[in-house]
């Protein structure tokens, strides 16, 4: 029993950076901006968070620094996509390559040194609930934050006017504009929120999950976020399932290894599911009912 509690908790902890990152990605893409720079933003968050935590000796300052660098990096992509109507695919890819390179350069001095990391903090009195308390409320603070974020996202996106505006901007910016909404402002806002969360997810890796800076430590998680966003169909609730599924697969590989299940099979399985979801989601009749922003990747050029 105890064994399974610790396994499930590990799955949630492994899935949390994906969840936070995916929520960020949803914020950006809901406004119609395709973001392939997630890996670059994430790894910059990881290195910046680590560096500031190391310099100040306070991991919380590291988290704040990671949020700020995430915003800054996302804004590079934002300016190119929103103000200059640039090619979003190329801009995003460039951001990823730039981020990976720059983080390696910045991180040179932080290799092989430990950092004060953020430990598990039981959330009293919720952690006293049998079983569930140990799984959900005896873990690290960013996991609690991710629960909260999902609720806020769901509420804003589906229950408030802001949500309608964001969805309108992603689906039909012309209509939104004609209703007197500043499309540019909404897109920038989405970019800022998204960048902050993706940067934070990077710092989760370097300050909580594996408290160290190691070059290339995001190891493709940024790309998993990109595919998870599609998998979740830009919906925060589905993002929870998707993130824990990917996290679960990562953890279960090693639980199941002694039973002769090849790890390669398990590590590819979430991608198979992603492909399946994509196939289903691309059918016109279903597409209409899904949350995919219709103008994703297309620059919005205002008619004069």
């Amino acid at each position: 029993m105890n064994e399974w509690i610790s396994i499930i908790r590990t799955i949630i902890e492994a899935g949390t950076p994906l969840l936070i990152g995916t929520l960020g990605q949803i914020a950006i893409e809901r406004t119609g901006i395709l973001n392939l720079g997630a890996e670059g933003i994430m790894i910059m968050g990881a290195v910046t968070g680590f560096a500031f935590a190391r310099i100040t000796g306070n991991p919380w300052i590291g988290l704040v620094a990671a949020i700020l660098i995430g915003i800054f990096f996302a804004l590079i992509h934002g300016v190119i996509s929103i103000s200059f109507n640039g090619n979003q695919t190329i801009s995003g890819l460039a951001l990823t390559m730039f981020g990976i390179g720059l983080s390696g350069l910045i991180g040179r001095n932080y290799i092989g040194i430990p950092v004060k990391h953020i430990p598990r903090i039981p959330l009293f009195p919720l952690d006293k609930i049998p079983i569930l308390g140990q799984i959900l409320f005896n873990t690290n603070p960013l996991v609690y934050l991710s629960f909260l974020l999902v609720l806020i996202y769901w509420f804003i996106l589906y229950k408030t006017k802001i949500g309608i505006i964001v969805r309108a901007v992603g689906d039909s910016p012309e209509t939104a504009e004609s209703m007197g909404i500043s499309v540019t402002k909404v897109k920038y806002l989405g970019t800022i929120i998204g960048g902050a969360l993706i940067g934070l997810s990077g710092a989760y890796l370097s300050l909580i999950y594996i408290p160290a800076w190691i070059e290339g430590m995001t190891a493709g998680r940024g790309w998993i976020i990109v595919s998870l966003t599609v998998f979740a169909m830009w919906d925060p609730i589905y993002a929870v399932f998707g993130s824990y599924l990917f996290g679960g697969v990562e953890v279960m590989q090693y639980i199941l290894q002694p039973y002769g299940i090849p790890p390669a099979f398990l590590s590819m399985s979430p991608y198979i599911v992603t492909i399946l979801v994509l196939c289903i989601a691309s059918r016109e009749s279903i597409k209409k009912r899904l949350g995919a922003p219709k103008t994703l990747g297309k620059p919005y050029i205002r008619e004069k």
Partner: peptide
């Protein structure tokens, strides 16, 4: 436990956690 990688902190962490559990 095999992780099929020379360098992957995430996999190493998950394999170690699996062994401890």
């Amino acid at each position: 436990r095999w992780i099929f990688s020379w360098f992957d902190p995430n996999k190493a962490k998950e394999a170690a956690e699996a062994l401890i559990s």
